[in-house]
Design a protein around this nucleic acid. Structure first.
Lengths: 207, 207
DNA sequence: AGTGACATTAATCATCTGATTAAATCAACT
DNA sequence: AGTTGATTTAATCAGATGATTAATGTCACT
């Protein structure tokens, strides 16, 4: 039996279509992409995408889940890791996001669109029930605040980390266009931020 | 002559359609809104929107320009104001964005989509030719850096201000949903940030 | 009341788009 | 070579959508 060839072939084109769909959906959003765009981008026929993935919507859901996983899947573990200190968590978060976003710069805008157009119920499932305030991360932060006699909501810390790290990627096209900055220069700035943001965060929370 | 009544009537419905379009476009994006959505949201007939604004595209351009103006129009003046100190500029920027975004929370995602889907040429016109590095703001920052024997790209400062201020609004639906936070609580957090962000920025740039 | 200009509507058109179908191609095995 | 099952394609369908048109309504002025 050489289904292997068939399967290999099949998985190959299925995979190629999915990759094409990922590129198109991530850059143009759900409403903005036509099934024909995906067909063209993948190099295959229009009917193929419905043959492999029953519908445009099903295909989108797959891409959506993968992107959501990429954006928030890994960090829950980091936030709840008992073995790392608060400072280490900050380093990890920033490093994870910068590295991931340099490879997938379209993810933030994709996620933001998702969140703005979909019923929040959808995210409950993916995100799990944990609120940021219930994480080890938040507990460690609250302890530190107590020592320094400060009171800042843990959400501020979390928002600050994510904002400083993610927003420059989301707004990259605008900043590049407006400041005549090349892709290489921009990447250089992002690499600088990978070092700077943890330092910044630490002094911010130390006021 | 009582064109007044006609004009008043006309401007009223034209205005109402534009407001409806603003709401729909801002929340669903260009591809995601159907002309029929705008008609329904405005309470008027489908044909009316083409009667007043030749096409969906023309109408979108109007909304787009207004939103762009809201998002970046006012800040160029702030950045180039010779009469204010760097610290005052930071305060002004944060205050402007927080106040504006509490009224128009959909603007950031709208702008980010725009920037990701459109040719950069479009923005040249709206943004004017000024790069951030050429502003009084950047000059003042460089001077301060020189005094403190530090070297940080002015763009980092600008990105930090905008990131810390704008991103929490863009990601509000996700954060609210994930943390079970009400609109009032979230607004409260944003008001706190209006005070905190300038302080944070100042210690960050003082390391 | 009649006229003219603008405002509004319902009905219709042409095109786009997601999906389906039926036929053709291909690879593996007998 | 023939059979079988999976893959791929071209052609087509049905519904959605942006736009247009022709008819009707409204209002000020004569």
């Amino acid at each position: 039996m050489n289904d292997k060839d068939n399967i290999a072939k099949s998985e190959s084109t299925e995979q190629k279509i999915k990759e094409a769909a990922r590129r198109v959906f991530t850059s143009k959003g759900y409403a903005g992409t036509r099934t024909r765009d995906i067909a063209e981008e993948s190099g295959y026929n229009l009917a193929l995408i419905n043959y492999y993935f029953r519908s445009k919507e099903k295909l989108f859901e797959i891409i959506m889940m993968e992107n959501l996983q990429l954006f928030i899947g890994s960090i829950i573990g980091m936030l709840n890791n008992e073995a790392t200190s608060l400072d280490e968590k900050i380093d990890q978060l920033v490093t994870y996001y910068v590295d991931m976003l340099m490879v997938n710069p379209g993810i933030p805008v994709f996620i933001l669109n998702l969140v703005n157009n979909n019923p929040s119920a959808l995210f409950e499932g993916v995100l799990g029930g944990n609120t940021v305030s219930d994480t080890v991360f938040a507990t460690q932060f609250k302890e530190q605040m107590k020592k320094k006699k400060l009171t800042i909501h843990p959400l501020h810390l979390f928002m600050n980390i994510v904002s400083l790290t993610v927003f420059p990627f989301a707004s990259a096209p605008m900043i590049k266009a407006k400041n005549g900055i090349s892709d290489e220069e921009y990447n250089q700035l992002m690499l600088e931020r990978k070092i700077l943001i943890p330092k910044w965060i630490k002094v911010m929370m130390d006021m």
